[in-house]
Simulated scan of single mutants.
Amino acid sequence: MSALASPAMTGAPLGDSAAEPIAKRAAEPLIRFDHVRKTFGGVVAVADLSLDIEEGEFFALLGPSGCGKTTLMRMLAGFETPTSGDIRLAGKSLAGVPAHKRPTNMMFQSYALFPHLSVWDNIAFGLRREGLNAAAIRARVDDMLSLVQLTAQARRKPHQLSGGQRQRVALARSLAKEPRVLLLDEPLAALDKKLRGETQFELTAIQRRLGITFVIVTHDQDEAMVLADRIAVMREGGIEQVGTPAEIYEAPVSRAVASFIGEINLIEGTVAHADARETALDAPALGTRVVASPAGAARAGEAGCLAIRPEKVAMRRVNGHSDGPNTLTGTVSDAAFMGEDTLYRVRLETGHLIKTRRSNTRDGGTIRLGDRVVLNWDPADAVFLER
Rank of each mutant, 00 (worst) to 15 (best):
E236N: 14
F79K: 04
I206A: 08
A314K: 08
G126Y: 05
L348A: 10
D381R: 09
D48R: 05
L72S: 09
Q153L: 11
K38S: 01
V97L: 12
V226L: 05
D48N: 11
G164N: 11
G269N: 03
P179D: 02
G78I: 09
P82F: 11
Q207R: 06
M338N: 13
V215E: 00
L49M: 15
I367P: 08
V148T: 01
H219A: 09
S162R: 13
L51Y: 11
L145V: 03
R74T: 08
L113R: 00
T331M: 09
F125V: 03
E54G: 09
D341V: 12
T151A: 14
T83K: 10
G63P: 07
L210I: 03
P294M: 05
S293W: 08
N133L: 10
R299M: 06
R180D: 07
M315P: 00
I31G: 08
A47H: 15
K312Q: 14
E302H: 12
T199Q: 02
N360S: 08
G85Y: 12
S93C: 15
R316Q: 15
M73W: 04
Q160A: 14
S50D: 08
R138I: 10
K69W: 00
T81F: 14
A205S: 03
I264T: 10
F337R: 01
S162Q: 05
G15E: 12
G91E: 15
G296Y: 06
D192V: 01
S146E: 09
L343V: 14
V290N: 06
K177A: 04
A303D: 13
P115E: 00
T151Q: 12
L266D: 05
M225K: 14
R316N: 05
I137H: 04
A124D: 05
M225Q: 12
V374M: 13
T71F: 03
Q207M: 01
G296T: 12
S6L: 11
V46K: 06
G330R: 08
F40L: 04
G324T: 01
Q221T: 07
S259Q: 14
L343F: 14
L343T: 05
P13I: 07
V141G: 05
G15H: 06
A170Y: 01
D275N: 07
T204H: 00
D323I: 13
P13V: 12
